[in-house]
Amino acid sequence: MKVFKDVITGEELFSDSYKMKLVDDLYWRVTGKLTTESNDVDESVYGGNASAEGGGETFDSNVQSGVDIVLAHRLKEVCDLGRKEYLKLFKEYGTKLNDYYKKNHPDQVAEFQEKFQTLLKEVRKITKDEEFQYFQSESASGEGMFALLGYEEDGLTPYMIFYKVGLEEEKH
């Protein structure tokens, strides 16, 4: 299995366990699904029997609903972020990526800069045409990638967009 991490934060964003499509060699469009996860404790696993006197332990129910990619990789939603603010953050992210490439891949800086300009045009276009939610890696530090979460035309099938220039693949 491959895990895709943010090159700035080093944190996990998604894995290849989802349906993925590389669009124009610019970004991964990863299709997820709506799901509900429960972390409830089942006493039968531990051999527990409820006492006739009613003195058994009770546990709080821990149920989470949402997009499987978000839940599995503990992505955090960045609320109250509009398109204009997102594009500003995206440009700042590009500056951080440029510094990363200069330091870690100096031979790829020109290629990165060209790809990022193309990506910026594409991001402007898709965020103008569609509504998105914005997510970051688990720490939500504001330093790394702000991934997009949108829905297919059916309104039920979620997908996320992660930018190829800001990812590193790690095999597990």
Results as ranks from 00 to 15, higher is better:
F14G: 01
S15E: 04
S17F: 09
S17L: 09
K21R: 15
D24T: 06
D25Y: 04
D25A: 11
L26H: 06
Y27L: 05
W28A: 01
V30R: 05
K33Y: 11
L34M: 05
L34H: 08
T36D: 11
E37M: 14
D40K: 10
D42T: 02
S44K: 07
V45S: 04
Y46T: 00
G47L: 06
A50C: 11
A52R: 15
E53H: 08
G54D: 00
G55R: 00
E57Y: 12
N62V: 15
V63M: 09
V63S: 04
V63Q: 02
V63A: 07
V67W: 03
D68F: 07
V70A: 01
R74V: 01
R74G: 01
V78D: 00
V78L: 11
D80W: 12
G82K: 03
R83C: 07
E85C: 02
K88H: 13
K91E: 14
Y93E: 05
Y93V: 08
G94R: 01
D99A: 14
Y100T: 02
Y101A: 09
K103Q: 14
H105Q: 10
H105S: 05
D107N: 13
A110R: 11
Q117Y: 00
L119Y: 09
L119P: 06
K121V: 12
I126F: 08
E131S: 15
E131K: 14
F135I: 05
E138P: 05
A140I: 02
S141M: 10
G142R: 00
G142P: 04
G144L: 06
